[in-house]
C-alpha cells in the first residue's frame, strides 16, 4: 500500500510539471504587451499600441471594409499608421484614446490591427467632471 502513495505523488508531480510547462508557453503566447510605436515596428508579434486619433486622418473604404487612421502618442507626438479590417466603430471620431491590438505589417508599413478598443468621452466616472451650472 505504501508504494501506491508514492506512485500517486510521482505521477501527480509529472502531470503538474507538464501542465505548468504547457500553461507557461500558452501564457507567453497569449501575452500581448503594450509597446511604443518604435517597438511595434520591430516586433514580429502581436502587441498593443495606444494613442489618440490624429484629427482627420481616418478614412473608410466601404467596398473593401477597410479603415485607415493614424495614432498619435500624446507625449512624444510620434505617429503610427493603422489599418483595420472590419466595420467602422460607432462614434469613432469622438474617441479620446484608442488601443489597437495586432502586429506590424512591414511590407505595407502600417500596423494591421485585429482588434480596436475605443474610449469615448463619458462624463460618468471620475470626479474631475463635477461641474456646477449657473442659471439666470
Amino acid at each position: 500500500m505504501k508504494s501506491n502513495k508514492k506512485v500517486y505523488y510521482l505521477v501527480g508531480t509529472v502531470l503538474l510539471v507538464l501542465f505548468a510547462g504547457f500553461s507557461y508557453s500558452e501564457f507567453r503566447g497569449a501575452l500581448t504587451p503594450y509597446v511604443s510605436y518604435d517597438k511595434a515596428r520591430e516586433a514580429p508579434r502581436t502587441v498593443q499600441v495606444a494613442g489618440g486619433l490624429e484629427k482627420g486622418s481616418n478614412s473608410y473604404d466601404e467596398e473593401a471594409g477597410l479603415m485607415r487612421f493614424t495614432l498619435v502618442e500624446a507625449e512624444t507626438e510620434q505617429t503610427l499608421a493603422i489599418r483595420y479590417e472590419g466595420v467602422k466603430p460607432a462614434n469613432f471620431e469622438d474617441a479620446i484614446s484608442i488601443v489597437a491590438i495586432g502586429e506590424f505589417d512591414a511590407q505595407a508599413e502600417e500596423f494591421a490591427a485585429k482588434q480596436l478598443l475605443v474610449k469615448c468621452p463619458s462624463k460618468y466616472q471620475g470626479l474631475e467632471s463635477v461641474e456646477t451650472k449657473t442659471y439666470g
Binding site: S23, E26, F27, A30, L31, T32, P33, Y34, V35, Q48
Partner: peptide
Amino acid sequence: SAPLLTKFMENPGQVGPEFYNRV
C-alpha cells in the same frame, strides 16, 4: 494578474481569452 506580473518587465501586457480557453 498578467498586467501586474508583467508590470516589472519591460512591457506590461495582458493575456487574451484564448489563454483561458486553451488552458
